[in-house]
Computed example of a mutant assay.
Amino acid sequence: MRLPFLFVLTTVMIDAMGIGLIMPIMPDLIVEVQGGSLADAAIWGGILSTAFAAMQFLFGPVLGNLSDAYGRRPVLLVSLFVMALDYIVMAIAGSIWLLLAGRIVGGITAATHSTASAYMADVSKPHEKAANFGLLGAAFGVGFVLGPMIGGLLGEFGTRAPFWAAAAFAGLNFVIGCFVMTETVTDANRRPFHWRRASLFGAFRAMTNIPNIAPLLWVYFLYSVSIYVYPAIWSYFTQERFGWSPQIIGLSLGIYGIGMAAVQGGLIRPIIRWLGERGAVIYGFVFEVVSFLLLAFLTNGTIALMLIPITALGAVVTPALQAIMSKSVPDAQQGELQGVLTAVHALSMIVSPLAMTAVFAQFTREGTLFYLPGAPFLVALVLMVIGSVIFLRARISVA
């Protein structure tokens, strides 16, 4: 089981690398193919991110249910193959509309995060779930370390170079997966595929019928909307506020990824042991609120770089919440649960880029009444506080 375990972690890492590779060059790429100002590029960046997320939102439950019925292996391998082809298309795209089409296909292939999480649920004992979900987060963090740093360096060779690298990584992992990935869905935990349950609303209805899941889904949604402020506006915010180059932006995202990987891959185990899953969520909320408040008004780029590892200390929230919900769901519905969580996260990725980039553009455009590039972080702070209140009021039974 060791090689399949590593393959799943690598798949999640490559998903993050693919996103991180292109983040440092997206402002320049959008200006290159579309023209206009940085504020205009931020709006288009929000549209591209929203298209990506909309597909995750629609297809997360579908792929989760497919993996419950037909297995984790075929869903992961087919998605990796299509992902590699999608990056090739984006590498040669000459218009904003082809980039948009690429993000639509990419969003469908990236919906397999639910399948990776379901695999972790399959192979984990109840007391191991938070830590193993944390390993998925750590793999994502490692991808965020490598992706932006490599993307920033490759950006020196042109805005298309990172896409070719992303295609190569996805293609190589597909080949490896064909040889090492084994199946964890058996007759004991297989559930027939039904479009009624695979549809977005059918999957949500099935999950919300489980006691106490609904408020936790709201918490997960509000947290995801808040935390997505980083990828939504970070490249634009740091360029506007601190004058950072793509290389520095890539470095900063890499530092955050290192911090997140350290927290979710290592620190989460003692944190869960000391505080429990509920306490870990509360602890994470506190760190995120403080981080947003500091970044909203910070004007020194050096201090911002120093604060980035501290902001990553709140990264325990997602795996702890996943573990709490996973323990409440039968084994045959793990893929369905993870599909719903992927859809909830994707919905936040629809809402957050549009809202956060619009707020950023409003507070940075020429002639604005109040100049504040960090305004999106204040919006995220308010949403984070609301999510923490819902969580504190929810009835949660954890080990």
Results as ranks from 00 to 15, higher is better:
R2Q: 08
R2C: 08
F7T: 01
V8K: 00
T11I: 06
M23W: 03
M26E: 01
L29F: 15
I30Q: 08
I30E: 00
V31I: 14
G35P: 06
S37K: 09
A42Y: 02
I43T: 14
W44R: 00
F52S: 02
L58P: 02
P61F: 02
P61E: 12
P61Y: 03
P61N: 11
V62A: 02
V62Q: 02
L66F: 04
A69P: 06
R72Y: 14
R73A: 10
P74L: 13
L76P: 08
L77W: 07
V78R: 03
A84Y: 04
I88Q: 11
M90T: 04
M90F: 04
A91Y: 15
S95T: 15
L98P: 01
L99M: 09
L100A: 04
G107R: 00
T115F: 15
A116M: 04
A116W: 04
M120A: 15
P126Q: 09
H127F: 15
A131V: 09
A138M: 12
F140K: 01
M149Y: 06
I150W: 13
G151N: 00
G155F: 01
T159L: 11
F163R: 04
W164F: 15
A170R: 00
L172C: 09
L172F: 15
L172P: 06
F174K: 05
C178Y: 01
F179M: 13
F179R: 13
E183P: 06
V185Y: 02
V185A: 00
V185L: 11
V185P: 02
T186Q: 12
R190E: 15
P192D: 10
F193C: 06
W195P: 05
R197P: 00
R197W: 10
M207W: 09
M207Y: 14
N209T: 13
P211K: 12
N212C: 14
A214I: 10
W218V: 13
Y220R: 12
I227L: 12
Y230T: 01
A232C: 01
T238H: 00
R241K: 15
F242H: 04
F242Q: 03
S245C: 07
P246S: 11
G250R: 05
G250F: 01
I255L: 14
M260G: 03
M260N: 01
Q264T: 04
G266K: 00
W274E: 00
G279S: 10
A280W: 05
V281N: 10
E288F: 11
V290S: 06
S291T: 12
T299L: 05
G301S: 10
T302S: 10
I303K: 08
P309Q: 08
I310P: 07
G314K: 09
T318N: 10
P319H: 03
A320H: 03
A323K: 08
M325C: 09
M325N: 05
G335N: 11
G335I: 05
G335F: 07
L337E: 07
T342P: 06
V344D: 01
A346T: 00
L347K: 04
S348T: 06
S348L: 05
M349W: 11
V351K: 11
A355D: 00
M356I: 03
Y371T: 12
G374Q: 11
F377H: 13
V382W: 08
V382R: 08
V382D: 08
L383C: 14
M384L: 15
V385G: 12
V385L: 14
S388E: 14
